[in-house]
Amino acid sequence: MTETETEKDLPRILIYEELCKGCDICAVFCPTEVLELKGNMMTVKNLEACTRCQLCDLRCPDFAIQVF
């Protein structure tokens, strides 16, 4: 499980590595291009751009990503 967090008011994106299958759906449908597929795993590329819209969570077929 990777966790990305900063002290300010930035969102917190949790990616469960044991669940993610790297299908790339969340990255393609992210409106602000926050996520990026690296190898077989989803990673956070640009956390500042995240608007907490939750589209990645709602379209993830594998219960692998959450945004707080």
Binding site: C23, D24, P61
Partner: peptide, 28 residues
Amino acid sequence: KPVPFDYSNYIRKGKLPHIWCPGCGHGI
């Protein structure tokens, strides 16, 4: 801040990851 939906009440413990292929719509 939006709170993500908590699926833990509805999912059997230890059963994930499921067998569906990467990108299969069944999980959604």
